[in-house]
């Protein structure tokens, strides 16, 4: 579903990533790790079409990203749930409206979708915060709201960039459980994190593969974590 072939990406200064080939298998659970600044966020952005590779090709759901118009990528995003580290929201809309935003922008608001929304709010434990505005939420609540927003369209793949970056251990465990549950429902999950203990905790719950960025390359890390 997401495939990178000999992809390289360089910012003005020099190459950040080079010669990366990667194929995300449907239904699998990945961690993407590596030191800060290694290019985890860049790689994720390549995976959801926010960046175009400098060379090589990125294929999303069978389409070469280079050949897609901006609006085509927007439509593809509806099949991908993205959780950002800073999980930005529309601060003037309530939590419920923010979580339902993907439905609204794709014109899929319906009665059934409304029921899904209620269920989803309960699943991430935000029912009591439904009418709050995003700035009133705690870090953990923001991350859960972002996760709910990422999955409301029932995407095939969930990409999360440091989803546990700003929350305590307890909350990161809770988020991890939600992501593992999503994976068990058949969704591909890719989590970028530098938190090795989170990866270790996940290994007891799910068959996770770990991709490590080192020296501008992505390697499949051994089971020795």
């Amino acid at each position: 579903m997401i495939e990178l072939n000999n992809v390289a990406y360089s910012y003005g200064g020099g190459a950040l990533l080079s010669d990366i080939s990667l194929q995300l298998a449907p239904g699998s659970f990945y961690f993407l790790t590596g030191p800060s600044g290694a290019g985890k966020t860049t790689l994720l952005k390549l995976c959801y079409g926010a960046l175009q590779p400098t060379s090589g090709e990125v294929t999303l759901f069978g389409d070469d990203v280079a050949g897609l118009a901006r609006d085509d990528i927007a439509v593809l995003r509806r099949r991908m749930g993205v959780v950002h580290q800073d999980c930005s929201f529309l601060d003037h809309l309530s939590v419920t409206e923010n979580i339902a935003l993907p439905l609204r922008v794709s014109g899929r608001q319906s009665k059934a979708a409304q029921e899904d929304l209620t269920e989803l709010m309960a699943w991430v434990g935000l029912t009591h915060r439904a009418e709050a505005l995003p700035p009133e939420l705690s870090g953990g609540e923001r991350q859960r709201a972002a996760l709910a927003r990422a999955v409301i369209m029932s995407p095939d793949v969930v990409l999360a960039d440091e989803p546990t970056g700003n929350v305590d251990w307890e909350m990161s465990q809770r988020l991890l459980r939600l992501l593992v549950e999503l994976n068990k429902m058949g969704k591909t999950v890719l989590i970028a994190t530098h938190d090795l203990s989170l990866i270790r905790a996940a290994k007891s719950q799910v068959q996770a593969r770990v991709l490590r960025i080192a020296n501008r390359q992505v390697q499949l890390a051994g089971a020795d974590l």
């Binding site: 995003r77 509806r78 935003l101």
Partner: peptide, 10 residues
């Protein structure tokens, strides 16, 4: 940026 992220077209 948020709207783009959740799949809004231009």
């Amino acid at each position: 940026a948020v709207l783009r992220l959740v799949g809004a077209t231009d």
